[in-house]
Design a protein around this nucleic acid. Structure first.
Length: 272
DNA sequence: GTTGCGTCCTGGACGC
DNA sequence: TGCGTCCAGGACGCAA
């Protein structure tokens, strides 16, 4: 399940492979999620950016190729002559250097779009995306104000991508555990918001430095696994001892998403 | 406008 | 061994 660290790892590997390459041909799976791939034919790739969990590749002509990997999306750039589409290939772009950018996605939760640069009206989550966690203008006060606008559970807000971009279930659980905030809390103090931001930055930076978290599907551009799964303190560890207080971590579903937390370290704050 | 639930989708785990 | 059921979760649509 690619989150910010996994997408950033891919972006760093993908950017030098794509910049200045022209798209000779392309194919996309059935509509509506993948069929815009051929709209990039004839364009030349520019810079590759990351917006939250989205990869945004500049295209000549003032357009962009937007990719979201969903849960099981994978990118690779094999040599065209040595590659053939697999059963889960959802899109490909043949490049002018004899290679092909390939988007495989088993569960089809990913998506792609070719849009006018900056026009994300067809991608509502991207259009309403919050600030990047590493944005220097983002501080605890800004995050606190953003979280304060809603009475939804703090973890649900994080997953919505609106208060802050790029956080998914793994890093949300890790950060909330690290700063001692209960995932079902419907309000946080200024101090908690500040601690949450510090925790998010720490777990996301660790994720990037470990090449991402591979629980099952995620692979780097070269097909290798990340190593951050060996450094998780909370996510997926229900029934194990909390590394801080030795209480047993618990798992519970809030708003349809499984959360793992420590019932001792992460006390739920009453709704305001 | 906000909140929360259902849906999409398929491989893997698990129970019988 | 084989079958059926459940679970995982990001984005989005929709009802309340």
């Amino acid at each position: 399940m690619p989150e910010l660290p996994e997408v950033e790892t891919l972006r760093r590997q993908l950017a030098p492979e794509l910049v200045n390459r022209r798209v000779l041909d392309a194919w996309g799976y059935l509509p509506p999620k993948f069929d815009q791939a051929p709209a990039a034919v004839g364009a030349r790739f520019g810079a590759v950016q990351r917006l939250g969990k989205y990869l945004v590749a500049e295209l000549s002509g003032g357009r962009e190729l937007v990719l979201h990997l969903g849960m099981t999306g994978k990118l690779s750039v094999p040599t065209t002559s040595q590659w053939a589409p697999g059963p889960y290939t959802r899109a490909w772009w043949q490049l002018d250097d004899g290679r092909t950018l390939v988007f495989d996605d088993t569960r089809r939760f990913g998506r792609l779009a070719v849009v006018d640069a900056g026009d994300y009206t067809g991608l509502p989550t991207l259009a309403a995306l919050g600030p990047d966690p590493f944005d220097p203008d983002l501080d605890g006060e800004v995050l606190w104000r953003a979280l304060r606008r809603s009475s939804a559970r703090v973890k649900t807000q994080l997953l919505s991508q609106r208060p802050i971009a790029g956080v998914g279930n793994i890093y949300a659980d890790e950060a909330l555990w690290r700063c001692g905030v209960h995932p079902a809390s419907r309000s946080v103090t200024r101090a908690q918001a500040s601690a949450l931001l510090d925790a998010l930055r720490a777990v996301l930076a660790a994720g990037i430095s470990h090449g991402g978290t591979t629980l099952r599907d995620y692979r780097t551009l070269e097909g290798t696994s990340g190593e951050n799964q060996d450094h998780l303190d909370c996510y997926g560890r229900a029934g194990h001892a909390c590394a801080r207080c030795a209480s047993l971590l618990r798992s519970r579903v809030y708003d349809g998403r499984t959360s793992t937390f420590c019932p001792t370290c992460q006390r739920q704050r009453p709704a305001r």
